[in-house]
Every structure is written in structure tokens, then in C-alpha cells.
Design a protein around this nucleic acid. Sequence first.
DNA 1: ATGAAAGCGCTAACAT
DNA 2: ATGTTAGCGCTTTCAT
Lengths: 343, 343
Amino acid sequence: MNDRSANPAAPSVRDVALEAGVSVGTVSRVLNNGRVSPERRARVERAIVTLNYRPNALARSLRTHQSRTLGLVIPDITNPFFSELAYHVEVAAAEAGYWVIVGSAITARREREYLEAVVERRVDGLILVPHRRLVDHVASLGDVPLVVVDREIEGFDVISSDARGGTAACIAYLTELGHSVIGCVAGPQDVLPARQRYEQYVELVEPLLREAGVPVSDYVCFGQFDYRSGFEALMTLAGRTPRPTAVVTSSDQQAIGALRACANIGLRVPADMSIVGFDDVSLAELVEPRLTTVHQDIESMAQHAVQRVLERLAMPRDSPHTPHADVLPTELVIRDSCGPPSA
Amino acid sequence: MNDRSANPAAPSVRDVALEAGVSVGTVSRVLNNGRVSPERRARVERAIVTLNYRPNALARSLRTHQSRTLGLVIPDITNPFFSELAYHVEVAAAEAGYWVIVGSAITARREREYLEAVVERRVDGLILVPHRRLVDHVASLGDVPLVVVDREIEGFDVISSDARGGTAACIAYLTELGHSVIGCVAGPQDVLPARQRYEQYVELVEPLLREAGVPVSDYVCFGQFDYRSGFEALMTLAGRTPRPTAVVTSSDQQAIGALRACANIGLRVPADMSIVGFDDVSLAELVEPRLTTVHQDIESMAQHAVQRVLERLAMPRDSPHTPHADVLPTELVIRDSCGPPSA
DNA sequence: ATGAAAGCGCTAACAT
DNA sequence: ATGTTAGCGCTTTCAT
């Protein structure tokens, strides 16, 4: 290892002690608000300023077995849902005196690497939005307190929001408006909330479609959560006969992609086509038309996640615990992208 | 400190050595690909698996004086420009075998805290997008290699993109289209690229406006980089007489906010109003109409930043170095939000 | 209240 | 090639 990369001048407790004319123990005590006479405390503090001393968090954590750091591993920091989650997790953690290391794990392999890196860094706890359901590698992580957000892993605490309820609210709203031929842009089915949204859709819409004599399967397109999937799905759905008059999606990004597709093929929203999103990211009310969507309280999810992980970390490791599941309420936000069918 | 929060069972090199019947030195050597006989190597590797051992990165860094970690401190992870930057920095760093800790510092105070935390964690280098120009606290950080992105701090390496050139290209394009009364949504003037965009605008548009007998100051609105500022600015600008037929902005988010405002007051884009963005975040081509904007190569900025910081970190600390400034080219991407003035 | 000293988990220099 | 050991910078007994 190249030792030149060490900061040659970084002062240590020892240097501070020397400068202040006290022992290292005393320096450590002022650093940690221990009992120190005012006179010596002042001397130490002066020395700290003089030397521009900064405690080495590595050494400190090594000694105390805690880092006051949480790890957050998400699939894609570029996705507004996750970047907002990251933001709120940071804020909630900071409030409790914790830092967070976030890792954006675009692939499952990368996720595994991140998880390991973060554990090797001895974070005190872990918040994870895993890629898929079956994450065997979490088991090998040791007994770091871990909470899963927006997904589900057997045996761990999970924080999610009420996907079924949200979807049901969408469908109810649309049928009330007069729609019956309702399409669905579904998300990846190995992701829990996407599956729930899909299942709830089928449960509610299949009867309607059967009445019209068409198979539900023709009115569902599976894809990712991204814009492109929404775009492509809408192109497909718009080709069905009878053409759906409304489409529910699994993310705002899909919905915005669908909006784009409508614009491209001359379908007016909502006159010719109603679109409903999912998530209510801040962009939702800035597109044209403003998106009717299902609001997920990301801030609250973040707060619950941090609280749970801190809770786990405060209890003895071997204490028995049943995993806890928090399902946060979800709410339909009505804006401009839905209306009665024009036919 | 509460010792219960330590992982009680986390095995150490010593445990592995015991299990494998070798010395700690040998274990360390297999961990670091040193010379070890195949036979003992195998024994150690087996022990590692058996114990589910993970090296303690803290102890390792403490000993070697390097963490193979970079710190990235940005103003707001929620802003797509920065989240894309974060993503690409992570990728570029990973390629070189480095991890990155990202901190989203919404306030200047928070920025200072992050910078300190990250230095205390002994990151090998730092990439920073500072809040304001005058960041006295970076000086007190010690001599960590630091590169500044998209801003400028005296004495440090900086990576930026050609804001002036980008703005000039917008204006040229608009005048070619026939516009002369061009408004401007400016960004915070203590942020370098925002100031450059503004200055370039004034330089180019003031002569045009003077001809029309109106003061430029009436055609500029200052704000943040966010949607709301763009929205509000456009509302103001649309009230001027003569009404501008085109507006240049300082970010895509501003531009999207402006698009919204146009929709609200019944201004068609681009027929009644041309809008040009800045940044070309992935969202730009997904709004309706698709945004004509100035493309910044975020990926390239990220790569340059990582490369520079790695470079600094490889050279001896006391070696003389003139700060380097990389200004990356910028490019006008023509999509649908601009057209000739209809009047 | 303070100093001396042990030790957190690891690597690297030194012996062998 | 392998074992032994000092020490990275810190906190925390244990004496005093």
C-alpha cells in the first residue's frame, strides 16, 4: 500500500495532548464530554484549534464498536422515488445523530457488493430496498439490524405502503367517472408492490371486462417502472379493440411515459384517455396535464424505517423478536389527468 | 457507549487463524493476495466461509491509512442533475476500485458538517459541489485531495461545463428563428454557472432589447433552480409589454415549471412562447412538448472529477501543483419547445 | 480529576 | 513461506 497517500500531518490525540501538556486520556475526555477541569479543558480546546485537529472516526469506531452510521442501499438513486427516500432517510437519521451511507445498486450483483462493503464498514444498521424477493445474500450478512422498505423479505422488518388500497381507490374513482374498459401498465412482478397493484387491478377490473366480453390479459402490459415502459405499454394498449378509456399505471414515471405516448398518437388526456400514476413524486403536478396519482408518503416511510432500525439496534441482539410490518396509508390525489370517458 | 450494540459474534482475523490453524499474518496475506502456499490458503478460505468472516474495513483503513473511499458532497440529491452526477461518480469510482459516500447537504451548515464527517472518516479524496462561492470551511479541512464540480473555489481543481457557450448557442438559435424579445429565468447569482448563463444572456440580448426600447432588467427574473422558480418567473415575464416570445432558463426544472405556467395561462408552446432549458436531464425529452435544452455531459463531468481526484491522491502531498480547470463542451439539443414567433 | 496502559482488528516489518 | 510483534488513533478501565 502506498503510504504517501496518508495525510502526513494529520494530528492525533497524542499530538493534541503534547501541545496542551496533558495526557491522551484527558484529551479523549474533553472530546467525549467527560469530567475535565475547566482549566485543562480550555488548554485542550486551544490545542485542538491550533493544530486543526479532527478525531479519526475510524479509530473511534474501532474502539467503541459503533459508527453512528446507517447504510441505505437502494436500486437506483436516479429514480425520484428513491432519491426522495434517501433524502428523508438522511434527515431522519441526522435528527437521531446518525449519518447515512447510501449506495445505488443498479444490479443485483452490485447490491450484494454494496451490502458487503457497508457491513465491512461496520454500519450500526441497514435499510434496504432489495432488487428481488429472494435475496439469499442478506442472510450471510451477519446480524446487523436490517429493515426492508417497499419490498418484502421473509423474517425482516418491513416498511411499505398500502398498494392494494391505492389501486382500489384508483379503480373506484375511474368506474365512478364512468370507465369500464380500463387498462393496466404493470410493473416487474418480482417486486412486491408492483405485484400487489397488478393483482388488485385484476380482481377489480376482470369482472368489468368479462361483461364487455374481452380478456383482461389483453389489457395488461408488463414492464419496468420507467418512462419507456409506460410509453411502450400505452402504445400497445391503445391498439386494443375496444380501446381502453383509462389506464392505471404502477409508477408516475410510467404514467408520464404514457402521457407522452398519448401526445404522440393524438390522444387527448383526459378527454380520450384517462391516466393515473402511482407514487406522487414531485414531478407529478408539473407535467401537463397534472397527474392524478396515488400519493405515497415517502417521508413517513423514511421516518418509520429509521425508527425501526434504531429500535432494533438498541435491543440486545439475542432478544427474541417477531419481525414487524408497517403498512402506511396511501391516498388518491385527484388532479387533471382523469375525466369521464368522452364516448 | 453501549457495548451491546457491538456485534457480539463478529469473527476477527484471530478467530479465522485459530480455526484454520495458521497465524494471523497468514490470514492477512490471503486476504491481501500475498504469498501463501496453496494448502494453507485453502484452509484459510475454508475457515472464512465457515465463520462467515468479513474483514473489518475500519481496522484495515486505520492501519493502511487509506480507505479506498471518496466523499461526494452535493447540495440536493433530489435534484436530477445531482442524482445523475452521483450515479456516474459511483460508477466511475467503482471502476477504479473506490467506493463513494454521498452526502446531500441542503444547507450550508449541513455542508460543513458533512465535509467534516467525511474527512473524519478519512476518505481518500473529496468531490464537492459547494453551495456558495466563499466556502471558508474547506480551507480548514486539511489537505485532502478535493475537486470542485460545477462551481468554483479559488485554489482547487474544478470541473465545469461551458455555460457561456451553451447560452450563446440558445440565443443564436432563437434569434435565427426570428425572436428578439427574449426573456431570461436566471438562477442564484452566487452559483457560478448560473451567473455565467445570466451574463452571457445580458451580453447578447441587451442590444436586441435596446433596439426595441425596453430595459433588459424587465426581462430577467432571478430564482432558484427549481420548478417553482421557473413557474413564477414565467408568470412575471408573460406580463411584460411587449411580451417576450421566447424565454431561456437556467435549468430544465425551471423550464418545466415555465411550461406548466404557460399551460396555466393558455400560452401555447412553442407557438406563443418558446422555452429553452439547461442541463438535459433525462426528463427533458419526456415532458410535453419535449424540451429544447443545453446538454451537459454529466457522465463525463463525473468521470473527469473522479480521475482528477484520483490523480491528486496519487501524487505526494507536498508536490507543487497548479489547480486545473476542465471546462467540458456543452451542446444545444433541439427538440419541440422552440419555434418561430407566431406574430 | 488525571495519567498510564491495555486493546479494538488489522497490516507490515522483521525473524526464521 | 510462515509466525511474531509493533502500532495505526482512539476510548476506557484501573490506579492514583
